[in-house]
């Protein structure tokens, strides 16, 4: 019976093609590594060995939309992105992903000893490009990264800004259906950051969707259509960029006071 219900649900969700990513009551749990000795003689309390990084999170990303995720360090942002990119299977709940999703963390598979050009080859093949496609896009990638003759130097000699320039130009050259950025736009100098933001806007025009994690309110305002705020693995607020940012700021200044003013949220965090 429950099986039947599941398949119904499934068909309902996949029927709408404009949904790129659909998370349904996702929970993620990390189990702490326990040594054999502890396992034999230690406490039997399983709950202590578990850490729920995400708890009952649901949200949908639609086609052509850019959603920002905010939250304090350790609130579960990165884990949530990994679930969206289908790298972590959730322990509870369901993930439906349509199209190609690419998580962009700087320098996918970069080998420090090899040259920038070699790394373009490695990185973009990991991103699913064929050899001829890489050759075709090499000039474009080189042009966008704009690091000059350093293209033929080993990546270990790069400054961190140069490294992220190269990484960013590779990752956005492939144009996946959904691009996931984990605090990537914060690197590089001002001129590159602007180039990067322009490129993101272009991607948005091409009806590609994106999820962005950033601590920079201006960038979020520039790029995002919606914001999601998570705290302690739970979804606190989902809505307009300005409103959510405002609440988030108020919370960050005085977390305890804010919680007292919003007892319903406090109750969900500490049941």
């Amino acid at each position: 019976m429950s099986n039947l219900k599941n398949t119904e649900n499934n068909s309902r969700v996949t029927a709408q093609s404009s949904e790129m990513i659909c998370l349904d009551n996702i929970s993620m749990c990390y189990r702490k590594q326990v040594s054999l000795l502890n396992l034999l003689f230690g406490s039997k309390d399983r709950k202590k060995q578990e850490f729920w990084a995400l708890k009952d999170i649901s949200f949908t990303l639609y086609k052509g939309e850019t959603v920002g995720i905010i939250g304090r360090n350790g609130s579960g942002k990165s884990t949530l992105l990994m679930v969206c990119a289908k790298i972590y299977p959730p322990d509870k709940g369901k993930v439906i992903v349509n199209g190609k999703v690419q998580l962009l963390t700087l320098g996918l598979g970069f080998k420090n000893e090899l040259t920038g050009r070699d790394n373009v080859l490695i990185s973009s093949s990991l991103l699913g490009l064929s050899h001829s496609e890489i050759k075709e896009r090499m000039p474009e990638i080189e042009d966008f990264a704009d690091i000059g003759s350093f293209m033929d130097e080993p990546v270990r000699t790069y400054s961190s800004g140069m490294r992220s320039r190269l990484a960013f130009s590779i990752a956005t050259a492939i144009q996946p259906d959904t691009l996931i950025l984990d605090e990537v736009l914060t690197t590089g100098d001002v001129s590159f950051r602007e180039k990067a933001i322009n490129r993101m806007k272009n991607l948005q025009k091409l009806a590609k969707s994106a999820i962005i994690v950033s601590h920079n309110p201006n960038q979020l305002k520039q790029l995002c259509d919606r914001l999601i705020w998570i705290e302690q693995g739970r979804l606190i607020m989902e809505g307009e960029v300005k409103e959510t940012l405002q609440e988030y700021r108020a919370f960050c200044k005085k977390p305890i006071k804010w919680m007292e003013e919003n007892p319903s949220i406090q109750n969900t965090l500490n049941p």
Binding site: K111, L114, S125, P154
Partner: peptide
Amino acid sequence: RQVLRSQFYANLKITVVT
């Protein structure tokens, strides 16, 4: 196969250039 090829190439090249 593209990934395998580039990883193969990268790993061999590292032993040479390092």
